[in-house]
Design a protein around this nucleic acid. Sequence first.
DNA 1: CCGTGATCATAC
DNA 2: GTATGATCACGG
Length: 226
Amino acid sequence: MRFPVSAPTSIETLLQRAHQLTGQSFAQLAEDAGLVMPNDLKRDKGWVGMMLEQYLGASAGSKPLQDFPELGVELKTLPVDEFGQPLETTFVCVAPLVNTSGLNWLNSNVRNKLSCVLWLPIDGRRAVPLGQRVVGQPFLWRPTAEQDQALQRDWEEHMDRISLGEVEAITARQGEFLQIRPKAADGRALTDAVGPDGQIIQVRPRGFYLKKTFTRAILEQVFNAV
DNA sequence: CCGTGATCATAC
DNA sequence: GTATGATCACGG
């Protein structure tokens, strides 16, 4: 493997690259990429995801775009346990808290990000040293009509609250599959939002996350198809 | 500060 | 045991 890897020009190329990662250990991948592997992920929470982006040729940077804009594909690593079940929720994107009047599900960032996802299950077992963990079997996923509708219901519920100035009343328990939780560098990060009386208030930035029940269902649908 | 990549760690 | 709310690193 030579770095940097060029952007894949087709979904087939992207999938081929992803499949070549299956079964490889993080230690081996780090070495081949010339990366220093941390001892654990305590202070490097996004390390695995960023390394795999390099291998697949994802455009670097922090732009609010898909990882492969030309292919319309978003890359998501998904840490799983020994039973292949998700260990974490999945961050989707930041939640807009102001100027929400023109937003709807069809033009939403959430729907755009989730319209086509290359899921890359990874070994997330804490008991296993990071270098010994391996990459799982990738798969390309598009939401079914039912999944899209379920996400839309959650999204609209959340956006209604945000528009009505109820952002501070939103809890991660709300939403069947799509939740809203804080998303910030630390407790001091603040951003504009709509308050109860329509005024601008300062709140912790929020993000949309997929609950584990949702990603678990995707994994089951793909790997335990009856 | 914002958005990217996420996992941590404590309350439940 | 596990989900929620908090937090870590980095580029722009």
